[in-house]
Simulated assay, not measured.
Amino acid sequence: MTLQPYREPLRVTLLRTGAIALGVGAALVWRWGGPLTPGFYGRWFVASLLALWPTLGGHFVELWYLNRLRPRLRSGRPAQSAARVGVWFVGGVMLALCMELSARALGLTPRLGSMSWPARASVGGIAFIGIELVVHLALQLGGRPSFYNGRG
């Protein structure tokens, strides 16, 4: 099976990941007090900016795997699956670090701030694996290439 590089217009990527980040930001802010609380739109904006790390950043983690690492791996599914989950973990750790640094730069204290850095990093890596598995499940259910069918 010949692997084709994954390509998508930047506009499509930005619209999809931006819409997801806005939705995640809205859900978080709604949970933190709802739209009738003072500063709702400012908190929504900040939460959406932080949500861009796993949405847009996660897209680029996946692109790196698909277009750079996967062509260099053995063609067997076990090697590719293990490498992909490893990339998701390391990518999640890096994205969690970026989210935390961004939150601190904005004057926010992350909720996991009392945990040690290795523990927070592990949470980010494991959470990102979970996010990717859910995303790929949606792709699989839609009949598209995914982690589960070995075509994505």
Rank of each mutant, 00 (worst) to 15 (best):
W117I: 04
G113S: 15
P9V: 06
G92P: 08
P9M: 06
L141E: 00
A21T: 09
L66R: 14
W30S: 08
M1I: 10
I20L: 14
T109M: 02
L50C: 08
G107F: 02
W30H: 05
F40S: 03
L28T: 09
P145H: 02
G124D: 10
V46D: 10
G33C: 11
L97G: 03
V24T: 11
W53Y: 15
G86K: 05
Y65F: 15
L101F: 10
N67A: 05
T2E: 07
R151T: 06
S116H: 13
V123K: 05
Y148I: 01
L56E: 03
P38I: 04
E100H: 09
L10S: 08
P78W: 05
L49V: 13
T2Q: 12
A51Q: 13
L22H: 06
G130D: 11
L63G: 05
V24Y: 13
S102T: 15
R151L: 11
G34H: 13
L36P: 04
P145N: 02
L108R: 14
F147Q: 00
W88V: 00
V12R: 15
G58L: 06
A27D: 09
M1W: 10
R74H: 13
R7K: 14
Q140D: 09
G25M: 10
R68K: 12
L95M: 05
M115F: 15
L10F: 10
V85H: 03
I131P: 00
A47C: 05
S48G: 14
T17Y: 13
P35L: 04
S48R: 07
F89M: 05
A83K: 02
A105Y: 04
A19I: 11
E132W: 09
Q4W: 06
A138W: 11
A19H: 06
A83N: 11
L49H: 01
V135G: 08
R72C: 07
C98R: 06
R144Q: 15
R70L: 07
G86P: 02
L14C: 14
R74S: 15
V12Q: 15
Y148D: 01
P71C: 10
S146H: 08
M99W: 12
P9Y: 08
C98F: 11
I126K: 10
E132C: 13
L36H: 14
R68C: 11
G130I: 10
G152E: 00
G86D: 01
T55Q: 14
G150E: 02
G33E: 04
W30T: 12
E62S: 12
G92F: 07
R104H: 02
L56I: 04
E62W: 06
Y65V: 00
E62T: 06
G150S: 05
T13G: 02
V61F: 00
G92K: 07
T55D: 10
N67E: 08
P71Y: 09
A119S: 14
L69D: 00
R31P: 01
L49Y: 10
G33A: 08
V12A: 15
P71Q: 05
F60S: 02
S114E: 09
P110K: 04
S48H: 12
W117C: 03
V90S: 09
R77I: 06
R43P: 05
S102L: 02
Y65K: 01
R120K: 08
P9N: 14
W117R: 13
T17C: 11
M1N: 07
G107M: 01
G143K: 01
I131A: 10
G142F: 04
A121G: 13
R11E: 13
W53L: 15
